[in-house]
Amino acid sequence: MSQDTPYIFDVTTATFDQLVLDKSFDQPVLVDFWAEWCAPCKVLMPLLAQITESYQGELLLAKVNCDIEQDIVARFGIRSLPTVVLFKDGQPIDGFAGAQPESEIRKILEQHVVMPPPAEVDPLQLAQSAFSESHFAEAEALLKQILSEDNTNAAALILYARCLAERGELGEARTVLDAVKSDEHKADLAGARAQLTFLAEAASLPDAADLKARLAQNPLDDEAAHQLAIQHLSRQQYEAALDGLLKLFIRNRSYADGLPHKTLLQVFDLLGNDHPLVTAYRRKLFAALY
């Protein structure tokens, strides 16, 4: 039943005073007296662990295996399992016997332990999450707020440009990207520029249905294959685009002066090196090259 973290640990007769009594002068320590044969103990322990973690270090959880640590059981007169005792300033100050619901346990703890304030969420991370889920308007609103406070934030500028691009404001998106002065975000900047390129190209191409019809009539129509990949990219259908580009590269790598290879590299820039599709298709491209 071990699930130790920095805030949760097993204690023995030899370590009890140091790990429970001494530590309880710095923050309260909840001691869970349990045994392997005790079914309610096995239900309660994960709940106590979850509650302890929610306190982010303001509360510790010590676990005493009563089958092994008989001296501690006798020392504190434990008569039934599970029993949970809260220690503070070296003394037992509260507790309960038997499994309890989370609400009741928290009521006991809130009298003795201060719940830390919720961690602040980085608005840029929120914007990135919204963008990745195609909630572009939500992302754009967050980014405008960030940029109103700091209009030189390179990461925010790049993502804002991508939001503009997604709603067709390609010229404005380019202007925003041109305002990025930081060298720290070269990969993101390359990806954003690739996105603008694909969206601009797609606007002047036949639609996807027509291109698919051409390929149905002639699977070796290299121009239609490449244009369909661009259309896929403009709709964020990245796997379909990469698959089409790789097949075109394998079939005719010299098409339009090596355009399939160049476009594949642009897609890698767009998605970033850590994207699983990039990892997979870099491997496939390497295999095709060598």
Rank of each mutant, 00 (worst) to 15 (best):
A14F: 11
F16D: 04
F16S: 08
F25G: 08
F25H: 13
Q27S: 15
P28S: 03
F33P: 00
A39F: 13
A39L: 15
V43L: 15
M45E: 04
P46S: 14
A49Y: 04
T52M: 01
E53D: 14
S54M: 04
Q56L: 06
L60V: 01
L60I: 02
L61C: 07
V64Y: 13
I68D: 05
Q70A: 12
R75P: 00
I78V: 15
V85E: 07
G98C: 02
R106W: 04
I108D: 00
I108A: 03
H112F: 15
V114D: 13
Q125D: 15
L126P: 03
E133L: 14
E133W: 08
H135N: 12
S148F: 02
D150T: 14
N151M: 08
T152M: 10
L177D: 01
D178K: 15
K181E: 14
S182A: 11
L199G: 01
L205W: 14
P206H: 08
A213P: 03
L215W: 08
Q217G: 10
P219L: 12
I230V: 13
R251E: 09
N252W: 06
T263I: 03
T263D: 02
T263N: 00
Q266K: 12
F268C: 09
L271M: 12
G272M: 11
N273T: 07
K284M: 13
A287R: 11
L289P: 07
